[in-house]
Simulated scan of single mutants.
Amino acid sequence: MNTTDKGKNTAIVAYMTIIGAVIAIFMNQEENKSDFASFHIRQALGIFLSFFILGYFVGYANSWTATSAFYLFYFILWIYGFLGAVQEQKREIPLVGRFFQNTFKNL
């Protein structure tokens, strides 16, 4: 398995729940470090963490329309990032991708 395949597999694992993102961080350690995988780990971790943080506040809205829109928005972001990993492209998540890259730059 070459480094591109290893990076792609790690990037895909990163999008499989928050636990997958943590597993991907360990898969992408120093000896197997891949820039492609690191990029997608930062994107996936940002999606999951912001979902949990913002979801806490959206839950107080007590509105099914706000909650539905919130879930739909994050599902679309997740699909966008996941498809980028599958297609071996480094596409930042719209609106927040640059922020995630800067915030988690040490991963």
Score class of each variant (00 low, 15 high):
residue 3 T to D: 13
residue 4 T to K: 02
residue 5 D to R: 12
residue 6 K to T: 10
residue 6 K to W: 12
residue 7 G to D: 01
residue 11 A to H: 00
residue 14 A to R: 12
residue 14 A to D: 01
residue 16 M to Y: 13
residue 17 T to L: 09
residue 17 T to D: 06
residue 17 T to P: 12
residue 18 I to Q: 10
residue 19 I to A: 13
residue 19 I to R: 07
residue 20 G to K: 12
residue 23 I to T: 10
residue 24 A to L: 03
residue 26 F to Y: 13
residue 31 E to S: 13
residue 33 K to P: 06
residue 33 K to E: 09
residue 36 F to D: 01
residue 37 A to E: 03
residue 39 F to W: 02
residue 40 H to S: 03
residue 41 I to Y: 00
residue 42 R to W: 09
residue 43 Q to E: 12
residue 45 L to E: 02
residue 46 G to Y: 03
residue 47 I to H: 13
residue 49 L to G: 08
residue 50 S to C: 11
residue 53 I to K: 07
residue 53 I to E: 08
residue 56 Y to C: 06
residue 56 Y to N: 07
residue 61 A to F: 07
residue 63 S to L: 05
residue 63 S to Q: 04
residue 65 T to F: 09
residue 66 A to N: 05
residue 66 A to I: 07
residue 67 T to I: 09
residue 68 S to I: 05
residue 69 A to V: 07
residue 69 A to N: 06
residue 70 F to R: 02
residue 70 F to Y: 08
residue 73 F to Y: 06
residue 74 Y to A: 00
residue 77 L to P: 04
residue 82 F to Y: 12
residue 83 L to R: 13
residue 83 L to V: 11
residue 86 V to S: 02
residue 88 E to V: 13
residue 93 I to S: 12
residue 94 P to T: 15
residue 94 P to C: 15
residue 95 L to G: 11
residue 95 L to S: 06
residue 95 L to P: 12
residue 98 R to W: 15
residue 101 Q to C: 01
residue 102 N to Y: 12
residue 104 F to Q: 13
residue 105 K to P: 09
residue 105 K to Y: 11
